[in-house]
Amino acid sequence: MTKLTDAFKNKKAFIPFIAANDPDFEGTVNNVVALAKGGADIVEIGIPFSDPIADGPVIQAADIRALKADPDLPMDTIFDIVKAIRQQTDVPLVFLTYLNIVFQYGYEAFTARCEELGIYGLVIPDMPLEERGELEPAAKKHNVDLIPLVTPVSGDRIEKIAKAATGFIYVVSSLGVTGERSEFANDLSELVTRIRKVTDVPTAIGFGIHTPEQATEMAQIADGAIVGSACVNIVAEYGKQAPTKLLDYTKQMKKAVNAHPVR
């Protein structure tokens, strides 16, 4: 059992997301610490990418803000942000980014730094099952889970993906890119059931969740809920006051995911 799997023990997990360096170094540290204080079970830190093809307008805008603040934004700055976060909280952290960022740093060096700083997993939307082989050896060596995505159109790929998963499985709520929505695919229960048949690795649903009601609904289907764009919106809207808002929001969402007893 990995540290990420542990985060789902005896409870439903609430997993917020924010983009690194949005609005700046200090702000990111304060925001992640606030999310942890509010009760986040895992925090996803997005490493900004110039061309985030799986993301909708809100996260795209966050990436642009982060890269505008520091056009080069070296990976070492991101690792320094994590180091600063680690001085204040031991909340499980994962990175969400695109494979080119990891590739350029070097798979071995990247995962080694993740292990050193307590980044327990990587979510890489442009690395499907068939392409994870090149990163997997380094990730395994450094105890970094590669968190796969499963979608409502994964079909007969579901079992293959689930069997190879460690940490947790990111269940994509519906077609399209990230961003708030009011409707989700209607066969998510069936999808999660199929995953659970082949693995004990927990599942968390993401893409579009923003209200407590949705979080409650999704947490009844899966083992956790991931919220990205809604958190990013708070950061965009409240700037320096974002930590307080994020803390309140996390408390509310954490309560919402645990509104019903654990299966």
């Binding site: 990418f49 110039s50 061309d51 070296p74 494979l99 080119n100 590739f103």
Partner: peptide, 20 residues
């Protein structure tokens, strides 16, 4: 230099971090 973008591993104009 070598990189991964738009679905392929190929050569790209990018910075050291991997931003296109």
């Amino acid at each position: 230099s070598n990189g991964i973008f738009h679905g392929m591993k190929s050569m790209f104009l990018q910075n050291k971090t991997g931003q296109i």
